[in-house]
Simulated scan of single mutants.
Amino acid sequence: MFSKVSVLVAFAVAVAARPETPSYSPPAHPAPSYSPPSPSYSAPTHPSPSYSAPTYNDVPARYYNQYAVNDEYSGNNYGHQEDRDGYKTQGTYYVQLPDGRLQKVTYYVDGESGYVAEVTYEGEAQYPAYQPAPSPSYA
């Protein structure tokens, strides 16, 4: 009899431990609905700024400027001088040309006349005699 009871108990334990076939169904979700929150702020009630554009006095320009370069090693020789008082401007600039002459420009600007320039040259143009390059010799 002990063996029948043991078999019966073993069978009952096996039946109780047997996994059941799961019946799974996903949970029901409601359809998504979104409505953004409405803004709930009001503009600050600060007083408007009392700013006005700055004003400047209309003062005519007045200056004097001058520079010069004379480099014997490179042959550079040029310069500029300008004087302005209000709407009247006058000046001079010059440059040493490769042919040996000095080109000088004297100009002025006065109101409605615009830019008026006079170009002059000092010295004589000098062109060295043509010297052909020596032909290479291969030994």
Rank of each mutant, 00 (worst) to 15 (best):
T45H: 13
V15L: 07
V116R: 06
A133Q: 07
V105C: 03
Q131K: 13
E118P: 13
Y121F: 13
S38N: 05
S48C: 03
P19F: 00
Y41P: 05
E122N: 01
R62V: 15
P27N: 08
T106C: 06
P30H: 01
T21P: 14
V13T: 02
S38M: 07
A43H: 07
A10Y: 01
Q126H: 13
P128F: 05
N77P: 03
Y56N: 07
D83G: 04
P136M: 05
P134R: 00
P19M: 04
E118W: 08
A68K: 13
A53P: 02
S52K: 11
P39K: 04
G91C: 01
G114W: 04
Q66N: 15
L102D: 09
P27R: 11
Y56F: 12
P27V: 10
P32T: 04
Q96Y: 07
P26W: 02
A125C: 04
L97K: 14
P54C: 00
G114L: 02
Y67R: 07
E20P: 08
Y108L: 07
A125K: 05
G75M: 01
T21N: 08
Y108I: 05
A125S: 10
K88R: 14
V95A: 15
A31E: 12
G91K: 00
Q96V: 07
G123M: 08
V119C: 10
E124N: 08
A129E: 13
G100S: 04
A12R: 00
S137W: 05
A68I: 03
G111N: 07
P32H: 06
Q90M: 11
Q81D: 13
T92W: 02
Y67G: 02
P98N: 06
A125W: 04
P32Q: 07
Q81K: 10
K4V: 14
Y56A: 09
Q126I: 14
G123D: 01
T45K: 10
A68F: 07
Y121P: 06
G100D: 04
E112Q: 15
E112C: 12
T92M: 05
Y34T: 03
P39L: 04
Y138E: 09
P36D: 05
P134A: 03
R62T: 15
N77M: 07
G111M: 06
S35M: 09
K88V: 11
A16C: 00
A117N: 06
G111Y: 12
A61E: 13
Y107R: 06
H29E: 11
Q81G: 12
G91F: 00
H46Q: 09
D99Y: 04
S33C: 12
P37F: 02
A125M: 06
Y127T: 13
S135A: 10
S135H: 07
S33N: 14
S6I: 12
A117E: 11
A125V: 06
Y41H: 00
N70M: 07
E72G: 06
V105T: 08
